[in-house]
């Protein structure tokens, strides 16, 4: 999903008259494009903040300070803190195995890694209910030992790991593929160890790609709604993440509070986009021929 969005910020080149559209058409097309993006993206984004501040700044901060909101924020941070590093380690391992070696079934493996992207969020949650739920495979055993996976934090973490599974790997595989393995081989020939080679030679080259993948993975981990909603059980103050808390407030017609909490996620999205733009710019600088 994301590697397709690596775009170059080149200035539109000056074009001869017969190689572009008449000025009227250019203006018209630009106007339609801006209107379309404005109507479907900019306006809703502005609405989040406008609604959040509708009842004043005091209500805004009170909504964020309230106990259940704080519990939701804490849980979301925990979930991201567990799932993002796990998927980062996986992404690095998978990218190393796939890009530095030849083996049969490589393309099939890449397809399998991409799988969670094409699974609907609701199904991503459901599969963990089927395994860990009371009627599930391990349900009776877990219940006998009083271990709760679904409708508790571990289930939320598992569902989040599932939906954010491909992000880092997907970012790193094409990047490391394009870099080949000459530098690593040179380092080894010169006597560097395996880990030393990775941290001193490979990592500096893929640093921006790692940041990019982690940022996207984190944004999704903190914002996932469908999958988490299925496994959470919606226990206020215990198994509610920020998006689930937003849903509850909204369904209680507590709109100002719902949008106040939602504005945190909107801010996170804006930071994500900003970091993404910076990283794209840095990657363009480091690898002028990348893409």
């Amino acid at each position: 999903m994301s590697d397709r969005s690596n775009i170059k910020f080149t200035k539109a080149p000056g074009r001869r008259k017969d190689l572009t559209e008449p000025a009227v058409i250019r203006w018209l097309l630009t106007l339609i494009a801006v209107l379309f993006l404005g109507l479907f993206l900019l306006l809703p984004l502005a609405a989040v903040f406008s609604q959040a501040l509708e009842k004043g700044i005091a209500v805004y901060f009170a909504s964020l300070h309230e106990t259940d909101a704080l519990a939701a924020i804490r849980l979301t941070l925990w979930v991201a803190a567990i799932s993002v590093p796990l998927n980062l380690i996986f992404g690095l391992a998978a990218a190393w195995a796939i890009t530095k070696f030849q083996f049969p079934g490589k393309n099939f493996l890449i397809t399998l890694i991409d799988l969670p992207f094409s699974v609907s969020p609701v199904i991503s949650g459901l599969i963990f209910i089927l395994i860990f739920g009371l009627q599930g495979w391990l349900g009776p055993w877990l219940d006998a030992h009083q271990i709760r996976i679904v409708f508790a934090t571990p289930g939320i973490v598992l569902a989040t790991i599932f939906v954010t599974f491909p992000f880092v790997a997907r970012e790193l595989i094409p990047l490391m593929e394009s870099q080949g393995r000459d530098e690593e081989e040179a380092a080894l020939v010169l006597g560097a160890g395996g880990l030393q080679t990775f941290f001193k030679v490979t990592f500096p080259n893929i640093k921006w790609g790692v940041i990019y993948g982690v940022i996207l993975c984190n944004a999704r981990a903190m914002g996932e709604f469908g999958a988490v909603s299925v496994v959470s059980g919606h226990i206020r103050g215990a198994t509610n993440t920020i998006p689930l808390h937003v849903e509850i407030l909204y369904n209680e017609y507590n709109f100002a509070a719902a949008f106040a909490v939602a504005s945190l996620l909107a801010l996170l999205a804006l930071v994500t986009l900003a970091v993404k733009s910076v990283v794209e710019w840095k990657m363009g600088e480091q690898f002028p021929r990348h893409r």
């Binding site: 630009t30 993006l37 809703p44 989040v48 709604f225 939602a262 986009l273 993404k276």
Partner: peptide, 27 residues
Amino acid sequence: YDFPGRRIMDALVDLPFALPTAVVGIT
């Protein structure tokens, strides 16, 4: 085409990837 705000518009296109679906929904 080049027009004022082009780069911001360009960055904004990714917003639906970054903005959680629940926030999109209520908004």
